[in-house]
Design a protein around this nucleic acid. Structure first.
Lengths: 195, 195
DNA sequence: GGTTGCAGGTTGGCGATGTCAACATGACCG
DNA sequence: CGGTCATGTTGACATCGCCAACCTGCAACC
C-alpha cells in the first residue's frame, strides 16, 4: 500500500476535530456546526468525536479557547510591533488589532464571548493589562486594572455592536465610517495625545 | 359549556406564542427553546406555530424585538424619573438602568444582541441619542451621535462581559465590586462632574 | 514472544427537533 | 345557506446529540 487506505485509528483525531471545528465555525458560525458532519468530513464514524470531547459544547469551548489565544497574540503582536509609536500609540494600534480580529474572525469572536469564558480568556485579559500598565508608568495596580477594564469594555462593546450590525455607519451619517472607530478609540484610550 | 374545553382555534396564538417564548427565553435561554415544547405548553399541535412564524428564528427575532422595546423603555423611564439629577446625573441613572436590564434579563439581553438587530433596535438607539442630546445642549448632531456611540459601546461592552463572566469582580481585586461599575460609568459618560 | 489491557475506533439505535405537505375545521362574508 | 380562507391538525422526513455495546490494534508486561 502506498498510503494506508483507512487505518483503524486516525492518528490525531482530537487535533483534527479541533481544526475542522475552527474551520467550520469561521465558515458558518457555531450554531450550524454539527458533530456528525464534522466526523464525516474527517472520514470517521459519527460517534468518534465523543472519544475526545464529552459533548458538542466542550468542543466549542476548546475552539473558543484557541480563539482567545489568537486574540491575545494579535493584541500583543500589534503592541510589540509598534514600539516606536510611544506608549499611547502602541495601545492604540493594539486596540485596532482587537477590532480587526473581531471583524475578520467574526464568527469565532461571537463564539468566544458567548457562554462562560473558556480557559485562556483570563490570560488574554492579563496580557492586555500588561500593555496598559506599560502605558501608565508608575500607576497603581488598581488604576491599571480599572483602566484595562474600561478600555476593554469600550472596545468590546463597539466590536460586538458593529459585528452584529446593531451599529452601522449609516446611523452616524453624515460622519465618515472611519470616524466611528476613531471616536471609539479616543473614548477608550483617551485622545491621541493624552495618557 | 362554562369554558370551551378546547376550541379548534386558539384565539390569539401568535400573542400567546410570543409571551410563552419570552418566558422560556428568560427562564432557560434561547438556545434551549423548542417550538414543539412551546406548542405543547399552549395545548396546540406541534406545527401550529408555523401558521404565525415562518421558523424558529423568526419567533426569536420577535422576542428580541420586544426586548429592545423594554430596554428602551427602561432607559427612558430612568432618565425621565431623574429630572432633578441634572443632565449628567440623568444620563448616569439611565446608564445604570441599561446595566440593570442586562443583568436582570440576562438571557433576553443575550438573545437581543445576537444575530442581526431586529426591528426596534434602531429605535432604541434613537431614544438613547435623544437623551444624550439633552445632556449636550448646543452640541452639533455629529457630536451627539459619536457621544452616543461611544457611550453605548462602553456600557454594552461592560454589560456583556460581566454577563458572560469574562469580567469578574475577582479580577479587579482588591477593588470593591461596585468600583467596576463606577469606573465604567465614569469612562462612558465622563466623570460625575463633567459633561 | 504471547497475552492482555485499554485508548480509540465502530455500529446501531433512541428520543427530540425543525420543517414541510396534505388535510380538517370553523368563522366570516356574500 | 354556501364557499373561502385563515388557522389548526396529522403524519412524515431528515438530522442531530448522545449513549450502549462491541471491535481493533498498539503497547506494556510477565
Amino acid at each position: 500500500m502506498t498510503a494506508m487506505a483507512r487505518p483503524y485509528h486516525h492518528g490525531d483525531l482530537r487535533a483534527a476535530l479541533l481544526a475542522a471545528a475552527l474551520h467550520a465555525v469561521e465558515a458558518g458560525g457555531h450554531a450550524t456546526l454539527s458533530l456528525r458532519e464534522l466526523a464525516q468530513g474527517l472520514g470517521v464514524s459519527h460517534a468518534a468525536p465523543y472519544r475526545h470531547f464529552p459533548n458538542r459544547e466542550a468542543l466549542l469551548a476548546a475552539v473558543a479557547s484557541q480563539g482567545f489565544a489568537q486574540l491575545a497574540e494579535a493584541w500583543l503582536a500589534a503592541w510589540r510591533g509598534a514600539g516606536a509609536a510611544g506608549p499611547a500609540g502602541r495601545l492604540r494600534l493594539a486596540a485596532r488589532a482587537y477590532i480587526g480580529f473581531a471583524t475578520e474572525h467574526a464568527a469565532l469572536f461571537r463564539l468566544m464571548f458567548q457562554g462562560p469564558p473558556p480557559p485562556g480568556a483570563e490570560a488574554a485579559f492579563a496580557g492586555m493589562q500588561a500593555t496598559v500598565a506599560a502605558a501608565l508608568p508608575g500607576a497603581a495596580e488598581a488604576a491599571v486594572k480599572t483602566r484595562t477594564l474600561t478600555m476593554w469594555s469600550a472596545l468590546h462593546g463597539f466590536a460586538w455592536l458593529a459585528l452584529e450590525g446593531s451599529i452601522r455607519p449609516a446611523m452616524l451619517r453624515p460622519l465618515p465610517p472611519e470616524a466611528m472607530l476613531d471616536a471609539v478609540l479616543d473614548a477608550a484610550l483617551g485622545p491621541p495625545g493624552g495618557g
